[in-house]
C-alpha cells in the first residue's frame, strides 16, 4: 500500500478521492453498495438557509459521454441537514465538507457560521451553480464579487474554506487569483459547463429549467486544463473534478496540479467508481515506484 494521504488545507484525508457535491446524497444511499468509509472525504449537496424545492422536471438529460442536470439545489435547508443528515454522514468516519450555496453574501455568512462547530471539516463555497436564478454562478463570474463573498465567509468561520469555481467565464485564472487574495484555503475546479438540449419532437428545450450543467467524461479535458493553469498560478491546493471515472483520469488531474479529486457523475455509470479509483491510484504508485502519491501533484506542470 502506497502513501495516498493528503492534508488539504488542514483537512486530513487517507486518500485524495472525494465525492462531488450533489452526486452522492448524504452517503447513506451508497452504504450498501460499497464501503463509504474508504472515501477520502464526503462533500454534501449544496445547502441553503431555507429548504429549497428545486427545479421542475425533467432535471436530467443524457448527452454524449455525460449528462446535463438542472436540479436547482433541492435541499432540506441547513437546519434539517444538521439535525437529520449530518449525523449519519459523520458516522462514516471520514471528513465531511459542507457545500454552501447562498443566494446572497449574507446567506453565505449565515451558513458558514451555522455549520461551524457542527463536526464538518470544511466548507465548499458554491459560487458556481448554473441552475439557480440568484446566487450560484451569478456570484462567481466577476472577480470582485466572488472575492467579497469569500472574504465574508472566511471571517465568519475558522473552518478551511474551499471555493468552487465555474468554468463558464472568460478567464478562470483571474477568479482564482481573486478568491485566493480574499483568503480562500483551497479551490475546487470545475463546476459544470452550461449547456442545453432541444427536444426536436416537442420543439422546446428538454430540461424543465431549459439550461443545465454538463458533467461526465465529456468535460474532463476542460477540467484538467483549468486545474493545470490555476494550480501553477495560485499557491493554494486545488481539488480537481469533472469527468473522473477511472484512476488514470484522477491521475491526469493530479499531474495537472490537483492535490485531491472528486468523483461525481461516475457514480451513475459505475457505483463502485470511487473505490476502484482509489485502488487504481494505489496500483499506479506500486507499479511506478511512487512512495507518496502527493509527489505526483503537478508532475505535468510547465517547468517540470
Amino acid at each position: 500500500m502506497s502513501d495516498l494521504t493528503v492534508n488539504l488545507a488542514g483537512i486530513k484525508m487517507k486518500n485524495p478521492v472525494m465525492s462531488a457535491s450533489g452526486t452522492f446524497g448524504s452517503g447513506v444511499e451508497y452504504a450498501s453498495v460499497f464501503d463509504v468509509s474508504k472515501m477520502g472525504a464526503l462533500v454534501t449537496k449544496g445547502l441553503t438557509k431555507e429548504p429549497k424545492a428545486g427545479n421542475k422536471s425533467p432535471r436530467i438529460c443524457e448527452t454524449p459521454a455525460g449528462l446535463l442536470n438542472a436540479v436547482g439545489l433541492q435541499n432540506p435547508g441547513v437546519e434539517v441537514f444538521i439535525r437529520d443528515y449530518l449525523p449519519e454522514m459523520l458516522e462514516f468516519g471520514v471528513p465531511v465538507i459542507a457545500n454552501i450555496a447562498g443566494s446572497t453574501g449574507d446567506e453565505f455568512v449565515y451558513l458558514a457560521e451555522r455549520l461551524t462547530q457542527t463536526g464538518v471539516a470544511g466548507l465548499e463555497v458554491n459560487i458556481s451553480c448554473p441552475n439557480v436564478k440568484t446566487g450560484g454562478m451569478a456570484l462567481g463570474t466577476v472577480p470582485e464579487v466572488a472575492a467579497e463573498v469569500v472574504k465574508a465567509v472566511v471571517q465568519a468561520t475558522d473552518l478551511p474554506v474551499i471555493v468552487k469555481l465555474t468554468p463558464n467565464v472568460t478567464d478562470i485564472k483571474e477568479l482564482a487569483q481573486a478568491v485566493a487574495a480574499a483568503g480562500a484555503d483551497a479551490i475546487s475546479l470545475i463546476n459544470t459547463l452550461v449547456g442545453m438540449v432541444i427536444d426536436v419532437d416537442k420543439r422546446k428545450p428538454f430540461l424543465g429549467n431549459c439550461i443545465g450543467g454538463l458533467s461526465g467524461p465529456a468535460i474532463r479535458p476542460v477540467g484538467v486544463r483549468a486545474v493545470w493553469e490555476v494550480s501553477q498560478l495560485v499557491d493554494l491546493p486545488v481539488i480537481g473534478m469533472g469527468g473522473i471515472t477511472t484512476g488514470r483520469d484522477a491521475l491526469e488531474y493530479i499531474m495537472a496540479g490537483a492535490s485531491a479529486v472528486a468523483v461525481g457523475s461516475a457514480f451513475f455509470y459505475d457505483p463502485l467508481a470511487a473505490v476502484k479509483i482509489i485502488d487504481e491510484l494505489d496500483q499506479y504508485c506500486t507499479d511506478h515506484g511512487v512512495e507518496k502519491l502527493q509527489d505526483l501533484v503537478g508532475a505535468a506542470w510547465k517547468e517540470k
Partner: peptide
Amino acid sequence: DERMACGVGACVGCVCQGHDGSYLRVCK
C-alpha cells in the same frame, strides 16, 4: 416511469410532484 441518473436517491434528478407541492424522488 422517469429518466434516472443514480437510481439510489442521491442525485435528485428524477422527481415527480407530491401533493404538498414538494418534489419526490421517483427512484427512492
